[in-house]
Design a protein around this nucleic acid. Structure first.
Lengths: 195, 195
DNA sequence: TACGATACGGAGGCTGCCTCCGTTTGTCAA
DNA sequence: TTGACAAACGGAGGCAGCCTCCGTATCGTA
């Protein structure tokens, strides 16, 4: 959210006042719409909510994926920042807490996350930036835990991130079950292969 | 494959000879098409390949999801059967091997699996049967491993299945990475929480 | 062979993504 | 303040995919 509010930050934004205004209107309409309507929300619907024409929407976001990414960018940034607050904690606790938050976060935005997941292997300029931001936040937590000897050394942050994303993506009625799966998977980080 | 070949088995199939023939034609055209074209294959394209009208396709499969499910049904059944061959092995080895096969299997059919994953939380009559079949195959492996004391007792098969599916779904260029993630997640099954 | 039930096939409806281009509006220099 | 021009708006319409409907063809049986 905040990331899309302060101007001229990431990737040149529209210049004229009305354009900037509409950009924001579309973005927040999209945020709303996805929260309510789920993945099936059409771009026309979003434009309508924002009170702009479909052409305007497309002027700002060249396609559906671009809009999703822009939305996501703001949200992820916020999540990343929350890693900073975990500095004082026990290394293992900090790491697993962060991933728990990540999952919980994914759960609230399932529709958005679901769709983005599908684009993940395709080129995604803005999305790559998000990934970087997640890395910046989470990787130190992992390293700290590894240095403290509470996490096996043969894992990389990227892997875990993807693993956790995979688990987060699983459609399950019961969030507790997702949490349990996360718990199990993360416990895998602590297991020491004997050999 | 075989599951769709022997007649009158699961869920009443079309009766007239031409109908049965077309059913098979569509199914195998779909199999081909998904192998080649990936997720984006349209039903029109499949009908064309099968040499039938789109109406005929819809007569047999009321919608896209139904077709995907029917396809999947056959394939999963085959996988399930492969569990029987693992009976003699060490319990842990048997379990993890089976999941490895599962992942490898998913990898070869990513397009299909991907799409189905999206439907998973929705009602899916035929799909439920597949799930059951997977349970029948994999759950005994899990139980055996738990009884042997090599897997923590606080996990259920359904959870693990979903976890593994989640990991399998992650789009990654490198299959080895997926395998590593699976390894880690499965190791979580062996970890014993102290408390 | 003739007839009813079953199945075929494709035109067309609907919806969603996206493009194109004529019209409107903000901005800035005079 | 005004005029001119670049920037932005907006929505009609193209295109593709999913699915429905119904007239036509085919199968199977008496």
């Amino acid at each position: 959210m905040s990331a899309t509010t302060d101007p001229e930050q990431l990737l040149a934004r529209p210049k004229r006042a009305d354009a900037r205004r509409n950009y924001e209107k579309v973005l927040s309409a999209a945020r709303e719409a996805f929260l309510e309507g789920g993945e099936a929300t059409s771009l026309e619907e979003i434009a309508r909510r924002a009170g702009v024409g479909i052409g305007t929407l497309y002027r700002h976001f060249p396609n559906r994926q671009a809009l999703l990414e822009a939305l996501y960018a703001g949200e992820v940034e916020e999540l990343s920042r929350s890693a900073a607050a975990l500095d004082g904690r026990d290394p293992w606790e900090a790491l697993s807490l962060w991933f728990e938050r990540f999952i919980a976060y994914l759960a609230t935005k399932r529709a958005l996350a679901d769709e983005l997941m599908n684009y993940m292997d395709k080129d995604a300029p803005l999305f790559a930036a998000c990934r970087a931001s997640m890395f910046a936040a989470g990787e130190p937590l992992l390293r700290r835990a590894q240095e403290a000897g509470v996490v096996r050394p043969d894992v990389e942050f990227g892997e875990i991130l993807q693993m956790v994303m995979g688990i987060g993506k699983i459609p399950t009625a019961d969030p507790a079950q997702t949490e349990h799966m996360l718990r199990i998977a993360l416990d895998g980080l602590r297991y020491r292969p004997d050999s």
